[in-house]
Design a protein around this nucleic acid. Structure first.
Lengths: 225, 225
DNA sequence: GCGTTTTTTTGTGTATGCATTAAAAGGCGC
DNA sequence: GCGCCTTTTAATGCATACACAAAAAAACGC
């Protein structure tokens, strides 16, 4: 039911996926070093595909390869967070603007609406993980509607870089009750075909989220994640 | 005077640099395919470092690796140009805003001022290549002043993707006489510490440049470069 | 003991060989 | 000739081997 004929996925691709998961899950903790040989053994393949995978992850800003020191899982500092959120703010706002310009009709926005509803539901249940998942869906879908493949890529990349940080602050953050009001406004602006408003609302939303998070990080004295 | 003791640069790094130059110079034309073996021979090294280099360039959006077909030099379509210019507009505007917030004083902005002056000079001489070089310097320096390393990276990456296209339209574009007025306004806004104005002016500048270029591409019936 | 030099260890960067498999070439019936 | 099957060719993906250099360990002088 899941696959047709079993697709031939390369070892390098598997290495990328597995390493990503190991990074996100914390199995490879931020700041830790791992020799190519060690990772190769862990993944049950030779150094070559592992190396290629590491090279890719390095270009995505998730790890760093230092000769003789191994593959270092990059920590994310408060400064990094600010940088990343700034980029996300700009590009998502652009996406919102473009989405509003595109003249989508309601049936094309069901995914977005569903994400918003799910966030409401999660807040009512005080289910933070469900909320985070729906929030993620909202942002991904918004960017998709923006129709710029490069923006999609960059946003995904930046999202990966802050994934761990988001996860570890999720339970100490205030319940984002206000947040969904913003989401609905963005949705409305897109449906109404008001690009300037869509941009502005989303931008303010993002900026606020950034301030909350960075202040939180300062308060937690968390310098890297 | 240039080097201390001759640094040990890896073959893979050399491969990256050389391949980049070969792409930008047109020695490897857009749309062409090249087998790993062929490139390895051309660069005088084995497939391994060439492969790593190609993987990197792929992650930067310059080439695409297709099994059995070889390394394909990615062409840039009119749509691609629009996407890229949209991203550049957003991120450079952010940089301008942040630069204005940073409270730079005149001596810290000499590089930017010099680039503007050079553009004026180049326009007076009708030296398009000198103008393009100074324009590049202006934008790079502006982004640097913005102080966001991720923005710098992404802008550089997007810049690489449109490098060939810019070069090949340079001589059919109208002389950018108006453009430098914008640059001076951005400069002034940064020095005056007016983030909103810096952003707005640069954004409009960019948007205009984008319209000129895309219209030009349509008129030239150039679909890929 | 302790700073310095020498030896050993070890990880990486690169070359190379090979199995796999997609594509091209060739053969065959009609 | 032409569609279809078989054979051959050849490019990749991966494993492996090895030289080099960096770091660690050991030896040494004092």
């Amino acid at each position: 039911m899941t696959s047709k004929t079993a697709k031939p996925v390369s070892n390098a691709q598997r290495a990328v996926q597995q390493l990503r998961e190991m990074v996100f899950s914390g199995e490879l903790p931020a700041g830790s070093d791992h020799l190519e040989t060690e990772l190769a053994e862990r993944l049950g393949m030779s150094r070559t595909p592992v190396r290629e995978a590491a090279l890719l992850l390095e270009s995505q800003g998730l790890v760093e390869m230092r000769p003789r020191k191994g593959v270092r899982i990059l920590p994310v500092s408060a400064t990094d967070m600010r940088e990343i959120y700034d980029v996300l703010t700009e590009l998502e706002s652009l996406a919102a603007e473009r989405a509003a310009e595109a003249g989508y009709s309601e049936p094309q926005l069901t995914e977005l609406a569903a994400a918003i509803d799910d966030m409401d539901g999660a807040i009512a249940d005080e289910d933070l993980e469900a909320w985070a998942e729906a929030d993620e869906r909202f942002h991904v879908e918004l960017v998709r509607l923006g129709g710029n493949s490069r923006v999609q890529m960059i946003v995904a990349m930046m999202g990966d870089q802050v994934r761990r940080a988001k996860a570890s602050t999720l339970f100490v953050r205030p319940l984002p009750v206000q947040s969904n009001e913003d989401h609905r406004q963005v949705y409305a602006a897109i449906l109404a075909g008001d690009p300037a408003k869509a941009r502005r609302v989303h931008r303010d939303h993002r900026r606020h989220a950034r301030d909350v998070l960075t202040e939180l990080l300062d308060r937690m004295r968390l310098r890297t994640l």
